Simulated assay, not measured.
Amino acid sequence: MTTTSLLFIGGTGQISAACVREAVRNGLAVTVLNRGTTTARSIPDGVEVLTADAHDEADVSRILGDRRFDSIADFLTFTPDQAAAAVRLYGDRTDQYLFVSSASAYQKPPARLPIDETVPLFNPFWQYSRDKIACERLLRDEHAAGRIRVTVVRPSHTYDRTQVPLLGGWTVIDRLRRGLPIVLHGDGTSPWAITHSDDFATAFQSLLGAPEAIGEAFNIMSPELLTWNAIALDLADAAGVETPQIVHRTTHDLVVEAPEWDESLRGDRSHPAIFDTTKIRSLATGWETRIPFAEGARQIIAWHDADASRRVVDPEVDALIDRLTGRVAVA
């Protein structure tokens, strides 16, 4: 099985845009389907763009007509209802449907480390993860029934230059530059896997058209193990901050004050993230990540510094971090 034509459902997100660029570099005929809204990530020349709402089954069916693609990579299916629609839409249109799931679906707290693809999927804390698990189960059953040929991909925390990978986003960097404290959960020493989207894309490419990938699930993430302290210090260094002030609070204290952070913290970030990538390396021969987070942090800061409109400070988040770091009294 060989992939020469590839349809991306999405194609302009933090992960999918890098995968589009990589597929173009590898000479594939690439089509993207999305709503065509404004994005910070441009679509490469030569990519066919289909404009439709990926979650409107009739709209997608109309615009695709009777077209087929060797592989279809879906970055926009998040719920089992959407997965059921994907089976109906894409099952007869492709030899390989790649479903982008999430490593946050793995059991929390993790049953064992490192986390390989056989660790149970169970996350009682985050609805997003539970929905991804439900999608995987539905697609597994549909694959077994012969209605679609599925490859599941489970990325961990994957970023590009547009994303500050700390809760609070650019507001955190702005505070560091103003000499104000920021907050991290726990003592900041929990290991975390963070992967540049360009590195993810090179491994993802190896799954396209691979017979060994059909019916299988794959972890794709960087082997670079960082702590949350190290991630914050790399960002501070890239932002030109020599003595960052970091305050540590328990996850419990954080979610009491910031319930909007509850699912992400208890469902993912507060647990150690050490993954086994043996399986993807068996297909992505010689794959090595090329962008350590220290370099990724410099890309993030440079991209934001290049345009003042990107440096958005959220006053509510700023006030929240003030409360969490003890700069103002909590009422």
Rank of each mutant, 00 (worst) to 15 (best):
D131Q: 11
V153R: 12
R177P: 08
G179Q: 03
K108A: 00
S156Y: 15
S190W: 04
T118M: 03
H185W: 10
F99Q: 11
R177I: 10
T189S: 10
P109V: 00
T151Q: 11
H157A: 10
A111I: 09
W192R: 02
Y128R: 10
R88K: 05
R137I: 08
P109L: 00
R175L: 00
L180C: 03
L180A: 07
W170K: 11
I182S: 09
I194A: 08
R175N: 01
V172Y: 01
L113F: 15
R147C: 02
R93H: 12
R149L: 10
Y128Q: 07
T158S: 14
S129F: 01
Q163Y: 12
R130I: 01
Q96S: 06
H143L: 02
I182R: 06
R147S: 01
R137N: 11
L167K: 01
E136G: 12
K132Y: 13
A134D: 14
Q163M: 03
K132F: 14
D131L: 02
P191I: 15
T151S: 12
L207Q: 10
P109R: 00
V153N: 14
N123I: 03
A105P: 05
Y159R: 03
F200V: 12
G188P: 01
R112G: 07
P165E: 05
T189Q: 10
A103G: 15
T202A: 02
L184M: 07
H157Q: 08
A83N: 13
Q107T: 12
F99S: 14
T162C: 07
V152L: 10
G188V: 02
W192S: 02
D174I: 01
L180H: 09
L180V: 04
V172T: 14
P114L: 09
W126L: 08
T189R: 13
F200C: 07
A134K: 11
P181M: 14
L166F: 04
R149H: 10
F204A: 06
L176T: 09
A145E: 15
V119C: 13
L89A: 02
H196L: 03
D198L: 06
G91C: 14
Y90D: 08
V183Y: 07
R137Y: 12
R147K: 11
V100Q: 07
P114N: 05
S101H: 05
S156M: 14
P124G: 06
D199K: 08
S104H: 09
A193M: 05
L113D: 15
P120H: 08
C135Y: 03
R161M: 05
H185A: 14
Q127E: 04
T158A: 14
D95Q: 03
P120C: 06
V183F: 09
R154G: 14
G188E: 05
Y97L: 12
P110Y: 00
Y97S: 13
D92K: 08
L166K: 05
